[in-house]
Nucleic acid binder design. Sequence first.
DNA 1: TCCGGGCGTTGCGTCATGCGCAACGCGCAT
DNA 2: ATGCGCGTTGCGCATGACGCAACGCCCGGA
Lengths: 258, 258
Amino acid sequence: MSQTVDRALSILPLLAQGPADLGQVADRLGVHKSTALRLLRTLHEHGLVYRQQDQRYRLGARLFALAQEAVENLDVREIAHPHLAALNERTGHTVHLAVHEDGEVLYIDKVESRYPVRMYSRIGKPVAITVAAVAKLLLADLPEPERRALAAKLDYPRYTPRSTPDAAAFLQELATVREQGWATDLGGHEESINCVAAPIRGADGRVVAAMSVSAPNVVVTAEELLALLPLVRRTAEAISHDYSGTTPPKEAGATDDE
Amino acid sequence: MSQTVDRALSILPLLAQGPADLGQVADRLGVHKSTALRLLRTLHEHGLVYRQQDQRYRLGARLFALAQEAVENLDVREIAHPHLAALNERTGHTVHLAVHEDGEVLYIDKVESRYPVRMYSRIGKPVAITVAAVAKLLLADLPEPERRALAAKLDYPRYTPRSTPDAAAFLQELATVREQGWATDLGGHEESINCVAAPIRGADGRVVAAMSVSAPNVVVTAEELLALLPLVRRTAEAISHDYSGTTPPKEAGATDDE
DNA sequence: TCCGGGCGTTGCGTCATGCGCAACGCGCAT
DNA sequence: ATGCGCGTTGCGCATGACGCAACGCCCGGA
C-alpha cells in the first residue's frame, strides 16, 4: 500500500538470489538508479543490506539477528523444546516443530540425532506444504473456507509417486487427518523418508503448532516408525498442556483444570 | 534517507522485542495510527510481519526464509564447511566460522561436538566483539582509521576479569593478533571457555572470515587447546586456498539444494 | 438493553517527500 | 590520452505519503 516501502522491500528477495549492483537493482525494480540508490541506502542504514568490497549489495546481518530474535520470542518453541529434546533422546530420530503462517508452514525448531552438520539449514525454511505431515495437521485445523481457498491455490508438485496429486486429494487427506488427530508422510516428499506427526493445541483447542518424528526407512521401517505414534501423541499432548497452562491470554473464558 | 522506508524498517526491531498492536507501533514510531497501519500493511504483504489472531503484529516468516537464503549464498561458508566438519571430526570440539559486517561480527557456521541441542541458536547472532578470538582477527585486519573509529565506539563489557577492559587494550591486542596471525580468547567471554582462532584470507590477502575451535576447560586445559593451534592454522590456510582458487564468481549459479 | 470507550479502519485534502532527470567524478580498459 | 560504465549528486516537479476526522465494531459497565 505504500509504494516507496513496497519497492524497498522488493529489493530483499531480489538480493536473496545473490549479490547485485545498483544498475541491476534499478532495472529489476523498474525505477531510476537514483531511486534505487536511495532505497538501498535506507536498507543499508538499517543493516538489512550489506555492501561488499566490489560495491555490490547483499542481504545484511541484521536480517539474521531479527530472525533470531523472532524465533526466540516464540513461546511455543520455548515450551516445546525440552519435550522435543527428550523425544529425540528416547527415539534417536529427528524431531521437528512447525507452525502455520499466511499459507506457509515452516519449521521453527529441530533436534537431529546423528549429523548435526546440516542442521540449521532447515529452520525457517518453508516445508513442502502439500505432503509434510506437520503441514497437514496445521492446515486441517483451518476454518473450512480458508482451507478450501488455500488448497485451491497451492501447487501440487509430484516429489514422488506418493505425493498428494491435487487439491481434491489434499482436502480429503486433511479431513482424515482432522478426524484422527495425527498425520503421516510416508515417502511423499522423499522416497525413503517417513514421518509421523501430532498436533499441539492452545487452550481454545485450536492447533497452534505441530511436531513430527522423521526417519529414513533404511533405519526403521514405516511400521516401526508408526509404532512410535502413541509416544509422539503423548509428547504433543504434554506440550499442549504446558502451553495452555502458561499462556494467560489476558482473560479467556474457559481455563483448563490446573 | 527515505523517510517512509526508514519508518517502516524501524518497525522491525520494535517487533523483535515482542508482539505489539497498532497503537503501540504508532506511538513508538511517533506517527499517526493511519500511517503506521499503511506501513504495517506493506510489511505484511511482503511477509516480513505477521498478524496473529489477537490482531497484534509480530515478525513474519519471510524473514527466516531471507536469512536462510542469504547465509546459504555465502560462498565462504560453503567452501569452508567441509574443512570445519573435518576439524570437528578430528578434535571433537566446537568449530565456528565468522565474518565481519558493518561493525558487527557474526557466526555464519558452526559444527558442534556433543550436544546438537542449542546449536542453531547461535548462528547469525552477533558475537562478543571485544573478546571473541574470531572478532579480533577480523577487526585486526581493518584499515587503521576504521579500526580506531570502531574501537572507540564499542562498549567493553566485563564479562569476566579477563575481558578486554577498554579501547586502548583492545587496539593493543589487535596489533598483537595482526602480527602473529592468530588469536585466542582464554576465558574472556565465559570463565571456563577457551578458544583459538585463525584467519581465512581472500586472494588479495585480506581477511574475509575467521574460524575458531572452542572448548570448556573441564574438557581440555588452555594449554592443550593451544596445542591445536598449528592444526587450526593449517585448516584456515586450506580454506583460504580453496576460497582464493574458486573465487572467480560462478555466474548464474542456481545451486538447487534438496 | 443501552451507552461509552478503545480499538482498527477509511476517505480525503494538503503539502512534504520521493521521484526522474541531467550532470558530474571516478576507475578501467582501450 | 580517451571514452565508456559505473555510482553519486542537486534539483524542480508532481506524486504519493501524511494527519485529520469520522466510522464501525467489539466489549464491559451501568
